[in-house]
Amino acid sequence: MARLYADEQFPRLVSQLLRNMGHDVLTVQEAGNANLGIPDDRVLAFAISNNRAVVTINRLDFIKLHRASSEHLGIIICTNDSDRPRMATRINEAITTQESLQGKLIRVVRPSS
């Protein structure tokens, strides 16, 4: 399963649901006060230094970071979904089909109504 780093705005319930699915998820809040409110490039740097892929709903900023450099362990950008179990399931499906997340930008979108 994947080692993930959930950024500050990522829904905590989805992090917990991903853990229940077997993923190792560390949240910004759990990583300590030094990580709260830091710029996105530092979020990504922290994830890299801890051998984790970033999971985020902050799509635009992390797309820019990926385009600037694919030297990371994966960025999973998600459309926010109020159906948290569905959101977690879609993330799980998107990442478990990958042999490796390294250097990849993975898009997880909410299904259209």
Rank of each mutant, 00 (worst) to 15 (best):
A2Q: 11
A2F: 10
L4D: 12
L4Q: 06
Q9L: 07
F10Q: 14
F10K: 08
F10D: 06
L13Q: 15
V14S: 11
V14T: 11
V14L: 07
V14Q: 06
Q16S: 14
L17Q: 12
L17S: 00
G22D: 05
D24E: 10
D24H: 13
L26Q: 07
T27A: 02
V28Q: 04
V28E: 10
Q29L: 12
E30G: 03
E30K: 13
N33C: 05
A34I: 15
A34L: 14
N35P: 05
G37K: 05
I38C: 08
I38V: 14
I38G: 03
I38K: 08
I38F: 13
D41W: 12
R42P: 01
R42E: 12
V43H: 14
V43A: 07
L44Y: 11
A45Y: 14
I48W: 09
S49Q: 14
N50E: 12
N50Y: 08
N51I: 09
R52A: 00
A53M: 09
V54L: 00
V55W: 04
T56K: 11
N58S: 11
R59H: 12
L60D: 15
I63D: 07
K64D: 09
L65H: 10
L65I: 00
H66Y: 02
H66W: 03
H66L: 01
A68V: 08
S70V: 02
E71Q: 04
I76D: 02
I77R: 14
D81S: 05
D83S: 04
R84A: 11
P85L: 01
P85A: 00
R86V: 07
M87V: 08
N92H: 12
N92L: 00
A94R: 06
I95Q: 03
T96Q: 00
S100I: 00
K104I: 01
K104H: 10
K104P: 03
R110F: 01
R110K: 13
P111A: 05
S112I: 14
